[in-house]
């Protein structure tokens, strides 16, 4: 109690008359300081984890990219050579090109997610059942996805028999994974199946945040469902659409699981990350793979910046 009284009085005294230790005590008792101390203490643990598991390894990787090295054994510093090599290899360019398939699939994925999100946000029979069903693939582990789709795309198995029901004969169907003209699409389709639910959940969340009064008022004014979508849902969803779009682009540039579990990146399906994995772990060129990773990061950052620019130029001003 005594102490408390004294600490209150610290604030009443004129600042010049305080001793050094009193000044320090006063500094720590100020509300502003206390707030900062709390913030710092609370963020120490997550920051520590972030630094330990993200920034430190990343720093190491940047270091690796200047060496000719394997994980084990001797390392030699070779400067920018790895970076030069990245730009001179046709397979890396091809791998980067393969990301376009995933971006194409990503656009379909987002449109489907938005469509389902709109339907499932209103009164739909068995709403929760459909939500769960559509979200479920996201929970299946990548290895199982590989196994499932291995069978799905096998000649004469699941997909072929389903299409057979619609009168398409086996002879007219392509080999889904063997045929280079279609195998990248087949694999990209698995990523639609897998991630569509995740984008949908994000959209549903955002739609539910829209005040129901808007819908009520607009329907009294005679707005159709389409008009509601166009003038209420879409404008309020803009930030989340942008977010989903950014996640999608990042995901397509760093697509790994699909091509890896289904084809090991063989037959022209290697994406940048699959190629990175192959170079680092199979060919023993960790330095080169690290340089690829750094460049990929720069590309992703550039694309994100570009998106932000476009977003602020064209949408913010409205």
């Amino acid at each position: 109690m005594e102490n408390n009284k004294e600490s209150i009085s610290l604030f009443l005294l004129p600042p010049e008359s305080l001793t050094r230790s009193q000044k320090i005590r006063k500094f720590f008792q100020e509300k502003k300081t206390q707030k900062h101390v709390t913030i710092i203490l609370f963020s120490v643990v997550p920051l520590l984890l972030l630094i330990l598991f993200t920034y430190l390894p990343f720093g190491e990787m940047v270091k690796f990219s200047f060496y000719k090295m394997k994980y084990l054994g001797k390392r030699t510093f070779i400067g920018w050579q790895n970076y030069q090599e990245v730009f001179h290899r046709s397979d890396i360019l091809k791998a980067l090109f393969n990301s376009l398939y995933y971006m194409g699939a990503g656009v379909i994925q987002l449109s489907m997610a938005l469509f389902f999100a709109c339907i499932l946000s209103f009164k739909t029979p068995l709403k929760n059942f459909f939500k769960a069903t559509l979200f479920f693939p996201y929970l299946v582990c990548a290895l199982a996805v590989g196994y499932i789709f291995g069978f799905f795309y096998s000649r004469g198995l699941v997909l072929d028999s389903v299409l057979g029901l619609f009168g398409l004969s086996k002879g007219t169907l392509p080999y889904w994974l063997k045929d280079r003209s279609i195998n990248n699409w087949s694999i990209a389709a698995t990523s639609i199946w897998r991630y569509q639910g995740q984008s949908m959940v994000l959209f549903i969340g955002a739609i539910q945040a829209i005040s129901p009064e808007f819908f009520e008022a607009s329907s009294i004014d005679g707005a159709t469902r389409w008009q509601q979508f166009q003038y209420i849902i879409l404008p309020s969803l803009k930030p989340i659409v942008i977010l989903n779009f950014m996640l999608m682009v990042k995901g397509s540039l760093s697509a790994f699981e699909g091509p890896y579990v289904l084809t090991y990146g063989m037959n022209g399906t290697a994406t940048t990350v699959v190629l990175m994995h192959q170079l680092a772990h199979e060919a023993g060129k960790v330095g080169l793979a690290s340089a690829m990773a750094v460049i990929l990061l720069i590309i992703i950052l550039a694309v994100t910046a570009l998106q932000n620019l476009i977003y602020s130029k064209f949408f913010k001003g409205e």
């Binding site: 291995g150 069978f151 994974l177 063997k178 063989m266």
Partner: peptide, 8 residues
């Protein structure tokens, strides 16, 4: 085999 891409 007919479809080597899915063989295991």
């Amino acid at each position: 085999e007919d479809d080597p891409a899915t063989s295991k």
